[in-house]
Simulated assay, not measured.
Amino acid sequence: MKNNLRKAILTLFLVVTSSIGFAQGPGGQNPNDNLTGDNDFSGTTPAAPVDDWILPFVLVSAAVGYYAIRKKYSNSTV
C-alpha cells in the first residue's frame, strides 16, 4: 500500500508539473513563435475558456476515482 501511495503521489506531481510546462500563455507575445508554422498568431485569438470547466472536471474525476477505489476494495474482500 505504501508503494502504491508513492506511485500515486509521483504520478500526480509529474502531471501537475507537466501541465504547467504545456500551459498556454497570453496570446501575442511573439507572432513568429508559432509551433504550427503559420504566422497568423497575432494575439487576437481569444483564450480558451478553461476556467469554466475546472470545477466540473474536478467533480467528475473525484467521482470516477471514488468509484474505482470502491470497486477495487469490494472485489478484493470476496
Rank of each mutant, 00 (worst) to 15 (best):
A48Y: 05
I69M: 10
S18K: 04
V15T: 15
V78S: 08
N34Q: 11
V58A: 15
K2V: 01
R70Y: 05
V64G: 01
A23R: 15
N30G: 05
Q29K: 14
A8N: 03
K71V: 02
K2N: 08
G28Y: 04
G21W: 12
G65T: 13
M1E: 04
I69D: 13
L55I: 13
L10K: 03
G25D: 01
F57S: 13
L14V: 15
I20K: 15
Q24C: 03
V16C: 11
Y66M: 13
L5G: 06
I54D: 03
L59E: 00
T44F: 03
A8K: 01
S61Y: 09
W53L: 07
P49Q: 05
N39C: 04
N4R: 03
S18N: 06
S18M: 11
K2A: 07
A23F: 11
K72C: 00
R70C: 09
L59P: 00
I20G: 02
P49Y: 00
D51P: 01
G27V: 05
V16I: 15
Q24G: 04
T44H: 06
V60M: 11
S61L: 11
F57K: 07
S18G: 04
G21I: 13
I20E: 03
G27E: 14
L12Q: 06
A63R: 02
G65D: 11
D40P: 09
S42V: 05
A63P: 01
P46L: 08
F22C: 12
P46R: 09
S19N: 13
P46F: 02
G37N: 07
S42K: 14
D33F: 04
I9R: 03
N39R: 09
V60R: 03
A63S: 09
D40R: 13
P31S: 06
D51I: 10
A48F: 07
L14Y: 05
N3V: 02
P26Q: 06
A8L: 12
K2H: 08
N3Q: 14
Q29M: 09
P49W: 01
V78D: 00
M1H: 09
Q24F: 08
L35V: 14
Y67D: 07
S18E: 03
D40E: 15
I69W: 09
W53I: 08
T45P: 01
M1P: 04
D52S: 12
I69S: 10
G21Y: 12
W53Q: 06
L12K: 00
